[in-house]
Design a protein around this nucleic acid. Structure first.
Lengths: 338, 338
DNA sequence: TTGTAAGCGTTATCAT
DNA sequence: ATGATAACGCTTACAA
């Protein structure tokens, strides 16, 4: 038998109300002697309050849901850890949910989290449609939700993201500064807001430099290594490209493979810029120049915003937070000679 | 206001018992007409039962705890995904907990999970002491627990792990087969059971080959990249080593770095075998020969065992499951010439 | 086939 | 300073 507040009360010769009071540190109105007595018995019996019963009344579970596409994508472990660490500091636990970016599963998990009565949700969604239904599901019970990395620009929810347009701009500028003008671009899925914003940055840099935009240099892929590989092969075969900007590191890895197959040397024949600064990408030869995202921090901030919403209860104004991107210079880019 | 079973009952003109029955698919004793009526109203009001209230009675939360050292260690995402996928199939959610291998946090999380009334725990612990206190904490309430990757040999709990000794044996055998006799060994922390077992395999292969064991060729590190780097530097400076067996890929990456710094070429001057077959380690040049662990599968199996224990309720016999290791031949090992 | 009522382990309200 | 008791939303005997 698990031991309950009743057992403590009985053994201490007090009411369960009193026990409840000492448990919850209600300082007012508790005799010092009884408090000590109760505490001693709690200790002795190693009693832990049943959080479920407590939740029933308080409507609080000290639990949040973290919904992401796939923890195996090396972008996410850092982020998850940032969230979990902050949650842990607040005595919260986190449910981890993998959707694979499937709209159906995304919505299912949101509903599931609601059923589990989480106090809040942190969500990286993939499908643009999701957000509409999301509003409906979430708003009815007014459960705090923070959007992560994607779709934060709508301002319908709070959100945290890197400043993607600026990042795209910086990366492209770097390549332009190295005399490249034929810059291939491997984007993420066309409907991802982060991919769109990065592309805007790319185009802005180009137009500032007075270089006309060539649609044929742009190819959308899937943020996966193999997608990057395929796109690079296509890109490199049909155009005289001297540089490629891949919208994430995974796809940049694919570019490396394609280049190797085509007998091109990086950075001599081809400059490459990635995005994310995934750990261990410095294992590549040559090391990848890339845009840094402080992913751990992103997780932390999203959790911080979520907890603000949770504690302030409901009708806080949405916050959108943009992290500053920075370019990590390594060895995969080079000034174009000829 | 959130809508409850009462609302449904009232609107359907039935008792809450009846509603409860149709929710829980108790087929017996429900009139087809009432069932339909109730179902319609549930649909109409988009009613979801409160899982918390349900848990209070059933003592089941459909939730498991997954306690690991650090999701950022590339070994774990695969594993976590394996667990989560299987959990999801069973309509379970998983709490993710990162301990950093800190004994205090390990125990804290176990207690926390107990307080959250999880139906079971999957646990990768680091500290050998942990397991004793673990028994006490867990056994009292008889909560199903499956050990992962480490410490499974004690048979005090169910567990899943690769057959580490065999793996160590295979890796060493491979190197011996390539005429290497001075084989350096970078192990994990000395008290980790998986590291010990791998070392046993190493020694077994050596002794079978009639090669005397040299303690100086063995160096313990921390399963981290930098630890591998440091160990390799020490190892390579003091002995004429022609091959290194690193007990995980991360440390093997460190070996690559050390070799590069010392002007050694892999595999010409040094053969390297890793362990884990982490994704993207094929990005290395040359690609790393390593021991494959089916980590995703490991996660799945652990969850499978856990669910068996959960459904069979308590006093099932502990199961220990060993996965077969296999050697992935790539480019980092070479027959020793001279 | 359906309903009444007890109970799960807490917290919150109102007395005392 | 302390206690009775209702309430949280559900499941489950037991009755009808």
């Amino acid at each position: 038998m698990t031991i309950t507040i009743k057992d403590i009360a009985r053994k201490a010769n007090v009411s369960i109300t009193t026990v409840s009071r000492v448990i919850n540190q209600k300082s007012e109105g508790i005799g010092e002697s009884t408090r000590k007595k109760v505490l001693a018995i709690i200790e002795e019996l190693d009693y832990r309050p049943n959080t479920i019963a407590r939740s029933m009344i308080t409507k609080q579970t000290n639990t949040i849901g973290l919904i992401i596409p796939d923890i195996r994508n090396p972008f996410f472990p850092e982020l998850v850890r940032g969230v979990e660490d902050l949650a842990n500091q607040h005595a919260y636990n986190v449910f981890l949910c993998n959707t694979d970016g499937d709209p159906k599963r995304e919505l299912e998990y949101v509903s599931l989290m609601k059923e589990k009565n989480v106090d809040g949700i942190i969500f990286t969604y993939s499908c643009a449609d999701t957000i509409h239904q999301l509003e409906e599901i979430v708003k009815e019970r007014n459960i705090p939700l923070v959007l992560l990395d994607r779709g934060v620009d709508d301002q319908k929810f709070s959100g945290v993201s890197i400043h993607n347009e600026k990042a795209g701009y910086i990366a492209t500028k770097h390549l332009l500064g190295h005399a490249h003008t034929k810059i291939g671009c491997i984007t993420g899925p066309a409907h991802y807001s982060n991919s769109k914003a990065r592309l805007n940055g790319y185009m802005k840099a180009l137009s500032e430099a007075g270089i006309s935009f060539d649609q044929e240099l742009i190819l959308a892929a899937d943020y996966q290594m193999d997608g990057g590989y395929q796109a690079a092969k296509t890109l490199l075969s049909k155009k005289a490209i001297t540089a490629i900007f891949a919208f994430n590191d995974l796809m940049a890895f694919g570019v490396y493979q394609a280049a190797a197959e085509l007998g091109m040397t990086i950075p001599d024949d081809l400059s490459v810029v990635g995005f994310d600064n995934i750990k261990y990408n410095q294992l590549l030869t040559p090391k990848l120049t890339t845009i840094e995202q402080s992913v751990y921090e992103m997780g932390e901030i999203s959790a911080k915003i979520l907890f603000e919403q949770i504690t302030q209860g409901g009708d806080v104004k949405n916050k959108t937070w943009y992290l500053e991107p920075s370019l990590i210079l390594r060895e995969s880019t080079k000034i174009l000679e000829n």
